[in-house]
Design a protein around this nucleic acid. Sequence first.
RNA 1: GGCGGCAUAGCCAAGUUGGUAAGGCAGAGGCCUGCAAAGCCUUCAUCCCCCGGUUCGAAUCCGGGUGCCGCCUCCA
Length: 465
Amino acid sequence: MPIRFFNTLTRTKEAFEPLEEGKVRMYTCGPTVYNFAHIGNLRTFMFEDLLRRHLKYRGHAIHHVMNLTDVEDKIIRACRETGEPLKSLTAKYVQAFFEDLDTLGIERAEAYPAATDHIAEMVELIKTLREKGHTYDVDGSIYFKLSTFPQYGRLSHFDMEQLKTGASGRVDSDEYETEDARDFALWKAYVEDDGEVYWETELGKGRPGWHIECSCMSMKYLGESFDIHCGGIDNMFPHHENEIAQSEAATGRPFVRYWLHSAHLFVENRKMSKSLGNIYTLRDLVAKGHNPRAIRWALISTHYRQPSNFTFEGLAAAQEALNRIRDFRIRLAEIKGDGTDLASEVETCERAFGEALDDDLNISGALAAVFEFIRDVNRLLEKSEAGVAGAQAALALLDRLDAVTGLFGAPEPEETPQAILDLVMERQQARRGKDFKRADAIRDQLAAEGWILEDTADGPRVKRG
RNA sequence: GGCGGCAUAGCCAAGUUGGUAAGGCAGAGGCCUGCAAAGCCUUCAUCCCCCGGUUCGAAUCCGGGUGCCGCCUCCA
């Protein structure tokens, strides 16, 4: 079975075949660095991480580019309001962005080009569009003339006529200085509100429009045609539609083969909004004591095209699921002696896992395969039928699947403090003396300090609660 | 007004070339244990928003209806 993705362009699942066999070129719309990323942003980055990891798992070499939007209306407004220069403002949030990626265990892309490092390339692209008759100027700004690109709307399946007449009256054409309300800016002429943010170029004094950076940087690093382009569903229109128009009008070649869009994240059944005060950043959640890996689980465990609802109840359930995996790993690591090598269980699990993800990244099916494996192996462990070889095979499997999901790896090793070990020892002595009252009191004390004590056939075991 | 999506157990969530409802969390009973914990076993939707239809058979197809949501304007 080939890998299949739901392509927004065709609205169907299609077998995935990269342009160059064994090598995947993908571009994902990155953060606008004027703020900390919220968990909705991170959900999309998480989906893209799963996508690249699964493609790697299936043996593809990945060339993944994610842009950093570091000049744009909202950033400029933030500069104006805070008095902070553009560069220092964006540098701060670029750093925060990478910290968040690390916290969640999101793999790094191969390149993170920043818009402000590519002004010259954008100017060239706009010049090309101008030479080919796709632009017009108004007061020093340059616009893309949509009427020269009749294929517009193919991705979002909007009809040009509808866009013109529709919009429920919310588009007031008087606000626009364009010839047609649908036309968008490639280059914005300098205005006083832009402050220090401008470039003196052949196109005049000003700054690039938002859409041009993605056309420019994706084609620079991945070629005029490449395999996959991702982003949040809200970017489908107009951003990605505009990217297609700019790129294909300039090159005359098909821009992107597979478009993948992720659905939005809700918080406790509500859309995130400032007025509801439910815009969570990763840092908020970590500061409240939530385990980053549980957050990762919560954000990744709903299929990417399905709207997902982030709740604290769900986060707790994610932590429980993670605990089950952790305990399974502990149990495997303690196995001694001979027994089955678990070859058939490992094979069954890995096949089901892989096939689920091959089917448009069906994460639910993949997770189910792992839990079925855990139950099957625990059953054998219960009957003492698994041996060291089997345990090693099972742990190796979890490590392989962890490379795809970042959910099944060994937790950070944690030293048990000597004081805790002393208490465990003292309890053992109490138990040997049948002083169960004392033993239970010590166990309660350990629990109060966050340590769970379990008595096993091989003696006591302590772990973090 | 136009375009599009979703509705499956207490919660989360798979499942459409139709064939008799994955998995996780929570809950109940049991085994194990000094007692626990972990693990295992059993149990937890005669039914998949509602009403019709097609079919030997539909959560999956068709028609109608209800509810929720998104996009059409910056937005992951």
